[in-house]
Design a protein around this nucleic acid. Sequence first.
DNA 1: CCAAGATTTGCACACGGTTGCAACAGACTA
DNA 2: TAGTCTGTTGCAACCGTGTGCAAATCTTGG
Lengths: 341, 341
Amino acid sequence: MDIKTKGFVSAETVARLAGVSRSAVSRTFTDGASVSEATRKKVLEAAAVLGYHVNHLARGLSHDRSNIIGIIVSEIPTPYQARMLDEMTRQLQAIGKVGMVINTTGDAESVANALRQTLNFRADGVIVLSGTPDASLIASCVANGQRVILINRSDHIEGPANLAVENAETAREAYHLLRRAGCQRLAVVSSTAGTPSLSARDSAFAAAAAEDGLSVPIIRAGATGYAAGAEAARQLYSRSGGPDGVFGVTDLLALGFMDAARHSFGLRVPQDVSIVGFDDIEQAGWESYALTTFRQPVEEMVQLIVQLLTQAGPDEWAHVVPPIKPVPIWRKSVLPRPNAG
Amino acid sequence: MDIKTKGFVSAETVARLAGVSRSAVSRTFTDGASVSEATRKKVLEAAAVLGYHVNHLARGLSHDRSNIIGIIVSEIPTPYQARMLDEMTRQLQAIGKVGMVINTTGDAESVANALRQTLNFRADGVIVLSGTPDASLIASCVANGQRVILINRSDHIEGPANLAVENAETAREAYHLLRRAGCQRLAVVSSTAGTPSLSARDSAFAAAAAEDGLSVPIIRAGATGYAAGAEAARQLYSRSGGPDGVFGVTDLLALGFMDAARHSFGLRVPQDVSIVGFDDIEQAGWESYALTTFRQPVEEMVQLIVQLLTQAGPDEWAHVVPPIKPVPIWRKSVLPRPNAG
DNA sequence: CCAAGATTTGCACACGGTTGCAACAGACTA
DNA sequence: TAGTCTGTTGCAACCGTGTGCAAATCTTGG
């Protein structure tokens, strides 16, 4: 007893205690390997006594699977990202994998380092939630046999799969929704981040308006968050003729906008201004906001991601993923459509 | 060119291309190892061509360090947890480690499995943000040389460090703060989760009130979230004599309470009811709420954790960590103290 | 040009697992 | 009892890296 081995206990130690060979120990912990019930029992007992746990790092050496999935993400406290992270780690665990989350600032070098980390740790796959990695580095990952999945990166790089949300289509829908509510002076609240998905949303909204001969200002007052939304409201309402219909390319922006419109300018929502968001974060449903918005089906998205991660080779699934369609969630921040035109 | 090795490229391959021995490659990527400038250059070139990245899994075999830190957490989308996760991954990366996040449901078996995972992956340390792991399993981690850090688990188990927040002390402060604001009928909004820190908060508040001869109802209307806070308000105000001062053991609970009090019962905050929260999540600062609360200094907490993780052995730091003191953040959800007593 | 010292290099083993292969034991049949 | 078949077991090689040690090379001084 009390075999105080410095560090972790290995199969060797277990084997000695159980009076069997090291292979027997290995086989006991390998599914489908041939071990007699008697040996298995001896091994399991010894393992329990010593507190033995198979070394997945070493196991990953022989196999080509590490069961590690890299998750590259920035701005984790953001409700949408946090929700994604939650769903991903949960579903990854369900299939016996584990998420290694790498927190980036979003800039090129930071993302590059993150990607290198996933290579260093021989991750089976990488999910890129934010930042646009260098194409050559992605190529390196793919060449090394990693599955790479980009979320909402518009770049059509050969190799990785790109899970896209119907940003443009949904933005158009937001436009028509506000128009049907009777809004005349529209504006879109966006951010300085300029990520592909955000740009797609604000420009598609503006384009839809242009088709009707309307010009729509796009306000980018800061990073993608509550504060930038509030600042946008201040900019738009500080002179007269402010909008009566607003599309926030992100719920966070929309909520910030709503708060500033109400508390700094005394506007009523939706009587004075209708507001539509994007994402359906939890806070959008809180009673103070009751934001009408478009829900991203996070659970289904992650299911798709996990499928891509586990299914056949990259050759087969590159670019074939159909875009995800957000669904409108009606709450109270948009004027109900008048009964008769 | 185009040496399409199936799977990852190894040092062996690089060595052949560079015309040196495998050790030379290894030494090129090891700090402080002796390599001539000429060899180093040849190796680096070959490595770049092949897209070689050192295998940290294999490296971890020889050393006793894997540079992996397990983070066991539940309810990631919760603003407080997400913020913690953000700060942790960030600070861990800054010291060359990487976080492996394991998402639990919080129940015993789930946490046990999570802990086993960290053992399997030979994590250098484990940070337990939620759930109370079995003492014997923790012992196993410690015996295997892992650093184990419990956040806000009151259990005084020998071995792991316990980073505690001054829950009781702060709850007393919340009580006195509400009393000084002139509140007469107090209530505390808690949750059915019954975690050590939450229990410490609600019971300490009630105890402080008891010292003044006041009886304070503790409402537990569901899990620790917005919905349970709102439900608590419905329960408290559905009959007359509802509270004029409320302590939410969590900001999320306080915000839910505030929304329901306002929108379902037409109460004004703080004129009709003063509300104090705990955590200072981002939403507490949003204009619709302006919640007075106690901030947990997340950044400093994580600094402390990282220090514990990297500093000397467990023997020295067990239980010696002084409790973290949250600081009051004054906003607008509590009546200002009347000028004269 | 030689010896001594400093630097670089390669061999071989270790780390902790998995696995093909051959040896072995036991059960059954003729 | 010998022969065959099935199921277990241990040996040894391998996965990709780090590193002590001795050999080899370069540098320097006389």
